[in-house]
């Protein structure tokens, strides 16, 4: 039996504070139940130490990053699960309602396809570019942020680069 890598309470506090800042800054919320959040953050750090990437603590990572890109936290399923259930699969991220104490996070079904069906649905890349778009797609040259609108924002909401640096991608 292997041992889970050690994670100190200080490491958990520091990571939890950073994730909390990042979440709130981007319009997300961490689970207000501190015992749950700290347990999950410990798992994220332990996974980073043993696998080299912060795989979801509530999913069984295989240790091969290319097979687990979809479950690196925040996972591909977080936003659809937040929209449908008010929490992500492990319940690290929760909705406004749950963050505000109006509801509690409950276990939800696994949205990740089983291993046998995964490659086609997750790793397929779209090669065809649609010929007509209702808006141009603009790209931030600094961080790659894309937006579909007639003119760029004043500043990139992700990296704060000036809007005039944006270029039309298609």
């Amino acid at each position: 039996m292997k041992k889970l890598p050690d994670v100190s309470e200080d490491e958990i506090s520091a990571r939890a504070a950073r994730l909390q800042d990042e979440a709130e800054h981007s319009g997300y919320h961490l689970n207000p139940d501190v015992s749950v959040t700290r347990h999950l953050v410990r798992g994220l750090i332990a996974n980073e130490k043993r696998y080299g990437y912060q795989a979801c603590p509530c999913r069984c990572a295989g240790g091969r990053k290319e097979d687990d890109l979809d479950i690196i936290c925040p996972c591909n399923y977080r936003d659809p699960d937040l929209a449908e259930y008010g929490a992500c699969y492990c319940a690290l991220y929760v909705s406004d309602r749950i963050a505000g104490g109006l509801a509690e996070a409950a276990p939800i079904p696994e949205r990740r396809p089983p291993g046998s069906e995964r490659s086609e649905s997750i790793y397929r890349q779209e090669n065809a570019v649609p010929s007509a778009l209702p808006y141009p797609v603009l790209r931030c040259p600094v961080c790659g942020y894309l937006c579909a609108r007639d003119a760029p924002p004043e500043h990139c909401p992700i990296c704060h680069a000036m809007g005039e640096r944006f270029r039309k991608l298609f």
């Binding site: 749950v36 509530c58 492990c90 319940a91 276990p107």
Partner: peptide, 9 residues
């Protein structure tokens, strides 16, 4: 169970 999973815990 998974050792890192809060639902498992």
């Amino acid at each position: 169970a998974l050792s890192t999973c809060q639902w498992c815990r």
